[in-house]
Nucleic acid binder design. Structure first.
Length: 321
DNA sequence: AAGCCTAGCAACCGCGAACCT
DNA sequence: AAGGTTCGCGGTTGCTAGGCT
């Protein structure tokens, strides 16, 4: 859609009073700026964003650099259209979490909160509204509060649908940096070319497979994304919320985890085999129905406890399509 | 061909939380 | 403890491409 800064817009923010703070650029990022930021991040890793902006030779505020990196330059981003599975998951998570885009994004590897937010506002919201004006009142479908159109209501999630969500981590195309970090060479130009010559959804993804990096310390992606920070043994990264076992956390519902068998045959009980734990979807649905039945709203119940339960949802990792 | 409208998306803004001094 | 700074998040804006008339 929008081409990167071909309009030659060098919008510059005149510094209010301090000319030493110099003119901070605003607006679209040029390829040169991207290159500078990528090079700096790969060499030095993440630190104080205002320092990054300064040291990388960018006339941008740190905030702008952070946004650009997180939403566009991070090598683990999955670009391109959302898959139907991702769409369903977003709808489902939004029904639970509301407009907590970062929480939703944390469960969609390679997707950013901004991307999901845009997708929701531009596409899903309208679709849901159109599909369901007759089934329930959509007085505030963009409410920041979770809604009760969870599974089986607005967006019926059948066993088959859920089965499509049941991804074995072994087939995962998780764009985890693991496996990509193999050396010190990095061709930022080819990376940029790859990005700007993008004609298909997978260009960034393809690029990332040969991406190498150096100097990425702990928290390279920040706490929020946790791509590197909390990778379990299957290579899947879980948001910080998943620090405890499902069983430990589950105090609200009667969800149970079948940990006795390593059998992957889930024909009877649809399950997520995300980790060693087999999480039965039927139980998940029970949990969902519980919430739905109670018609719970934020502020009317124990949000922390809820989040702990939510955190036990599997992190799905879709094939790049 | 020109103008208008709309969808999609990158980026900015404001606010609150966390952290630092 | 108080004030300042930085970070992260969600809401919003502004711009472009593409479709339509």
């Amino acid at each position: 859609m929008r081409k990167p800064d071909l309009m030659g817009k060098d919008r510059v923010l005149p510094s209010n009073s301090n000319m030493n703070k110099a003119k901070l650029r605003k607006g679209l990022w040029s390829p040169e700026e991207d290159e500078k930021l990528i090079k700096y991040m790969l060499t030095n890793g993440q630190g104080c964003w205002s320092d990054i902006a300064r040291n990388a030779g960018l006339q941008r505020c740190g905030k702008s650099c952070r946004l650009r990196w997180i939403n566009y330059l991070r090598p683990d981003l999955k670009r391109g259209a959302f898959s139907p599975q991702e769409e369903e998951l977003i709808i489902h998570l939004h029904s639970i979490l509301g407009n907590r885009w970062s929480q939703i994004a944390a469960r969609l590897p390679g997707r950013t909160d901004n991307e999901i937010k845009n997708f929701w506002n531009s596409t899903l919201k309208k679709r849901l509204k159109m599909n369901n004006t007759s089934t329930f009142s959509t007085n505030d479908s963009d409410s920041s509060e979770p809604r009760d159109y969870a599974i089986g209501n607005i967006m019926p999630m059948h066993d088959h649908d859920i089965m499509t969500l049941c991804m074995d981590s072994s087939s995962s195309s998780s764009i985890s940096m693991q496996g990509m970090v193999t050396g010190n060479q990095f061709d930022s130009f080819s990376m940029l070319n790859s990005r700007y010559d993008v004609t298909g959804a997978a260009s960034l993804f393809d690029m990332s497979t040969c991406f190498t990096q150096v100097g990425m310390g702990d928290g390279f992606y920040g706490d929020h994304y946790g791509i590197l920070g909390a990778t379990n043994k299957t290579g899947l990264a879980l948001p910080p919320l998943e620090s405890r076992s499902f069983e430990e956390k589950n105090t609200v519902s009667n969800c149970r985890i079948d940990m006795e068998s390593n059998n992957n045959n889930c024909s009877d009980n649809i399950c997520f085999n995300n980790t060693d734990q087999r999480f039965k979807v039927e139980d998940m649905l029970e949990l969902e129905n519980h919430w739905q039945g109670e018609n719970l709203r934020m502020g009317e119940w124990d949000f922390e406890g809820f989040m702990e339960n939510i955190s036990s949802f599997p992190l799905l990792d879709f094939q790049a399509e």
